[in-house]
Nucleic acid binder design. Structure first.
Lengths: 344, 344
DNA sequence: TGTTAGCACTCACTTATTAAGAGTGCTAAT
DNA sequence: ATTAGCACTCTTAATAAGTGAGTGCTAACA
């Protein structure tokens, strides 16, 4: 197993466990005492020396204990950590009442997660990639304003107010409504092609510009827009001395506040084909430079038919991986519940 | 003038100006040199001693220079600062296409402002207090789902999906639409009373529950909901050493992240009857405890007919009040432009 | 009487020195 | 192979000394 005998593994695990707990480098004596190996500190030292040579641990300076390296953490996560594999409930059905409501749920989720884990958190809104048009309706608000309401199959509702140069009478509005619905119903954006658009405009008889604007709104609703990302608990990083010096904290919080860079994390996480949907980035494994001193654990949640989003936890490398991964699994199932309730 | 002769005022001003610039306590020699008073440092010292006694400045310790006290800053803002009074454009007309779009504009504004000022910023979404119903429309999405679209006079659009036990036929939907529009059109929430509601339900003939849900949605649209607050540039506070120790930074950023407490600031600022709409909170004058080491400058923007919001800048006490106040004035006029453009 | 030069004094901040402690690596004995 | 012992290293905390900016006071001056 990667050049490690059983004893080395035990020692490595002990080192990591302790370090996770205290955040302090751990020395040979501590290990000798707190482990059931019944070895002297000297022996442990020898083993530690080996482990260092193999790259699993490093010493911050000559006479401190050792701390896990990225490789060490990686080993821990991959081999040592066996989470109690809770059954992941299959979430299939869901209805979303409102995009706005969705907002609040996600915000709340991020907040709760931050509070319970004591780490910084992020959550991306689900990506409605292949979503289809369910219903379109135009109505005149007053002489110059036309309201377009577009409902997608996922029940995402989009509104757009179009300012007209001259009013449309009721009959025309009705005609356009029929035209739009009969043509676009059940189509996803990839199925709406140029030919169809020009045909539509033609049939609209002089109101081609309106059709154009409406179609733009439709496109906007369906488009692979970069998903919204919500963060919370940024200030939790101050709880970990190794991250809270002015420089690092500032950078970190900035990336959390700006959100933009987090998109890389989201798409990376979404594109991965992990069975469990959980992904762990340790230090430089993360696509985000400013997080090189952190670990990031992400999970994918899925609300049926390819509608996916990402939840993530950002903390120090010595984060409690076990707890975090469990929380995330738990959460994904809870999300199911939340969205189901929203549909009634 | 508050027990200050002209010379004292000049010295006080010099102290504040310098301190704003450097963030360091300023001593008598510096003043003696950098001022056109042609006095020796000893004289300045005497005057400074007086100023300290009067409470305008304090010494952080025996042998440092002096820094302005809250009272000193207050004097500066009230008497010494005469901003070039740019004409505040009267913003009357406006149209808002989308609540969602609104989001983005506000977010963007906060961001820009943070970038140009190098302080943390916040902006509250406008409060549509007395807004009236312009248009209501119900439509069936499928057998069980009814979509209610509510448009307010400010062009805020609200959607609500109502799940039905049994389908409504087109005729009934039409009837309900007419009923709702003819009854509610042009009314604000305070004008929709219980009598009207029960009458409506009665006329709805068996669909009272639907009316109820729709009315709830209407109420939700108009309600004095606490406005959304957007913040940006939280990490700017790290640029000011006096705010960036772990403890203070954490607290500050937390209040910015949580937003909730900022509501106090918004309502305080909105309720004030300052002529210019600009409000300055120095240190403990702010309603928010965690900002006792900061100053906050807020401005009210108004988009016609009592629709108001607040923009704020949060920085160290030694913030560049002049620049900040100008920026805010400038911004309020710009906001006008932005919202006007959105309407075309 | 207001202003100024001079001087002793204070106090934060910097740098150097020292001491203590934790931990390692190596060697020699078991 | 394991372990005890010991010299060595390096961080951290504590202490000391020096520096310099700045003050407050006093006495002289215009």
């Amino acid at each position: 197993m990667d050049g490690l005998d059983e004893r080395k593994v035990k020692i490595l695990e002990a080192i990591i466990r302790m370090y996770l707990d205290t955040g302090e480098p751990v020395g040979s004596r501590t290990i000798a005492k707190d482990t059931d190996l019944n070895l002297s500190s000297a022996t442990i030292r020898n083993e530690m020396s080996d482990l260092e040579e193999l790259g699993y641990i490093t010493a911050p300076h000559t006479s401190a204990g050792r701390i896990p390296s990225d490789k060490g953490y990686r080993f821990y996560v991959d081999h040592l950590l066996q989470t109690k594999d809770k059954e992941i409930s299959d979430m299939k059905e869901f209805v979303i009442e409102h995009t706005e409501k969705m907002d609040q749920v996600l915000r709340q989720v991020a907040k709760m997660l931050a509070k319970t884990t004591n780490y910084a958190t992020m959550i991306s809104s689900p990506k409605y990639s292949g979503s289809k048009v369910k219903f379109i309706q135009l109505s005149m608000l007053d002489e110059t304003q036309l309201l377009a309401v577009i409902v997608m199959e996922t029940n995402v509702v989009k509104n757009k107010i179009i300012v007209l140069k001259q009013p449309l009478d009721n009959e025309e509005v009705f005609r356009l409504n029929v035209l739009l619905n009969s043509t676009l119903n059940g189509l996803s954006i990839s199925e709406i092609n140029l030919g169809m658009i020009s045909r539509l405009k033609e049939q609209a008889g002089g109101h081609g510009d309106i059709i154009g604007t409406v179609l733009d709104a439709v496109a906007e609703s369906i488009r692979q827009e970069e998903p919204e990302i919500y963060t919370s608990g940024a200030t939790n990083i101050f709880k970990y001395p190794e991250l809270s010096d002015s420089q690092k904290a500032s950078e970190l919080i900035y990336t959390l506040e700006e959100k933009q860079q987090l998109a890389a994390l989201v798409s990376d996480s979404l594109s991965s084909e992990e069975e469990t949907g959980i992904q762990v980035y340790i230090g430089n494994e993360s696509p985000i430079q400013t997080m090189k001193d952190c670990s990031v654990v992400t999970a994918t949640y899925e609300l049926g038919e390819g509608v996916k989003g990402t939840v993530g936890i950002i903390g120090p490398k010595r984060m409690d991986y076990e707890k975090v991964m469990d929380s995330l699994k738990e959460l994904t199932t809870q999300l199911d519940g939340i969205f189901k309730k929203k549909s009634t």
